[in-house]
């Protein structure tokens, strides 16, 4: 899926904050985006298996069906979670 994104991966560790058109927060860490980006493209660029994660934007659940229509903007805060072992 990484190949689907033109240019550097938006979720990649090499994206430079200074060149960014906007920054968002993902799981507590700042990330640079080249510009407004659909959530579906961000997730694909991050290499995640979308069937196994859930996403919250600004403390609101984003249903899977809305990933493509959800445009990430400046200051957005994402939580991306999955299931791990627990008691």
């Amino acid at each position: 899926m990484r190949g689907a994104m033109p240019g550097p991966s938006p979720g990649g560790p090499t994206a430079a904050l200074t060149d960014a058109a906007l920054t968002i927060t993902v799981n507590g860490e700042e990330r640079a985006l080249p510009g407004p980006l659909p959530l579906s493209e961000f997730l694909a660029g991050a290499g995640l298996d979308l069937r196994k994660v859930a996403v919250e934007r600004n403390e609101e659940i984003v249903p899977r069906s809305a990933y493509a229509a959800t445009l990430l903007g400046p200051g957005d805060s994402l939580e991306i979670v999955h299931f791990i072992g627990g008691g």
Binding site: N27, A46, V53, I80, V81, I84, G86
Partner: peptide, 8 residues
Amino acid sequence: VAVRRVNL
């Protein structure tokens, strides 16, 4: 199971 942040 527990719910936690994915390791990006």
